[in-house]
Amino acid sequence: MESADDPPRKIIHIDMDAFYASVEQRDDPALRGLPVAVGGGGPRGVVAAASYEARTFGVRSAMPGARARRLCPDLVFVPPRFDAYRAVSEQIHRIFARFTDVIQPLSLDEAYLDVTQNKMGIASATYVASEIRRMIQEDTGLTASAGVSYNKLIAKLASDQNKPDGLCVVKPEEGEAFIARMSVSRIHGIGPVTSRRMAALGIETGADLKRHDLGFLQRHFGKAAAFYHGAARGIDDRPVRDREGRKSVSVEDTFEHDLLDEATLIAELDKIADRLWPRVEKAHAIGRTVTLKIKLSDFRILTRSRTLPHAVHSREEIFETGCTLLRAQLPLTKGARLLGLGLHNLADEPDRDSVEVRQFELAI
C-alpha cells in the first residue's frame, strides 16, 4: 500500500493494435486494407481477432464465425499462426526489458510496465512510452497504443482511449475526472453482468459510482465493493507484478460435428494432451489437479476434476487421468461439441516470457 508521502508511480500499459490480424496483414500484403478475421469461419468457428476494417462492421473477437460473416459478407478468414504471434511478442518484450524489469504480461499483445525507476534513468514516463512505441514499429512493423498514468487501472483505460496507434497520458490530478466520464462497462474489473446490475441501480458512469458510499456498494457487490469504491476515485494500489502466478494451464478443442462415440472422444482427448503437455513443460508448471471439460450440444458444460496424491509428472499421466474422468461420464446424453483438459492448482509460476495465450484461441 502506498502512503500519501510516496511519489506517484509511473505505470505504462502497452496494447498492440488488432495484434493477430495486424501480423497477418503485415505478412501478407494482399490482406492490407481488407476486413480480416483470424480464426475459423465455419459453423463452429470463433473470431480470435479482427482487423480494424472488420471492426467497422461490428466484427469482434470471441464472436462466432457465422455471425461475423453475416455482419461482413466480404470478411476474409485466415487461420491463426500462434508461433508467428509468439515470435512477435518476444520481440516486443525484449523492447520492454530495455527499460524495466518490472513487466506484467496480460497476454501476448499487452502488458503493464512500472517505469518509476527505469534502467535508463528517464524521468518522463511519457517519453518512455513514446520510445517503446517507436521501437515496436521499427522492429516489428506494427503499431501499439499506450496509456501512461499513476496506477494500473487508469493506464489500461488510457491505452484504449486513442486507439489505434495512440498515446494517452492521465496525470494524478486528472485521474478522478477521467474516471468520472467513463462508462462503468469500460472499467477493467467490471464485467457485463456487474455493469447490468449497476445500471439497474442507476450507476452508468464513474461519476454515478462515486456518489455511492462503501456501505451501499458492499451491500450490492460484496467483496468487490472496495475496488469499485477506489476505482470511482481514481485509486488503484495494485502493484505491477513481474511474475504473475498462473492458476492453470489448459487446452480446449471445439469440433465441427458433435461427438458421442467413446473411441472418437478418447482419440480427441489424446490430441489435446499432445498440445497441453508442452505448455505445462514450458511454464515449468507443477500441479496435482487434472480437470476435464465437456461442452454438450445443448451448451451445457460438465467439469470434472481429480486431484492426485503427487504432482503430475508426464503427458501420459495427465492423459490417463483425463480418460478416467471422461469414461465416468459415458455414455453422454448429448453429443460433445467441445473437450478441454487442464492442469490446475499450480504450485509454481511460469517464466516471464511464457505468456499464456487467451483461452479463446484454443477453441477455434
Rank of each mutant, 00 (worst) to 15 (best):
G287Y: 03
D242S: 15
M198I: 13
I286G: 04
R243E: 09
K247E: 13
D274C: 12
Q218L: 07
E252H: 12
E320Q: 15
E252R: 10
I266P: 00
R186V: 06
W277M: 11
S297Q: 12
I203K: 01
G215K: 09
R238H: 11
E316V: 10
G234L: 08
P192W: 03
P192K: 15
K295A: 02
R219N: 13
E316I: 09
E244S: 11
G189W: 05
T254F: 11
D258C: 06
D242W: 07
E244K: 15
G215C: 05
C323E: 14
A273S: 15
I266E: 13
A231R: 10
R241P: 00
I318D: 02
E317P: 03
I294G: 04
D258G: 13
I190K: 04
T321W: 06
A231H: 08
F255L: 09
G230C: 06
D236L: 03
H212C: 05
G189D: 04
L326S: 04
K295W: 03
R186W: 10
H220K: 10
F319W: 14
R279T: 06
L259D: 01
T205V: 01
L269E: 05
P278W: 10
H284G: 15
I266K: 13
T264H: 07
Q218W: 02
T194I: 14
D237T: 07
V249Q: 05
A225Q: 05
E252K: 09
S250K: 01
K247P: 02
M198E: 03
L326D: 06
F221R: 03
T194V: 15
A226C: 00
V312M: 04
L260Q: 06
K295M: 06
F227V: 00
L308S: 02
G287H: 03
E204F: 12
A226R: 14
A267V: 07
L296H: 11
T254D: 08
H313I: 13
F221V: 06
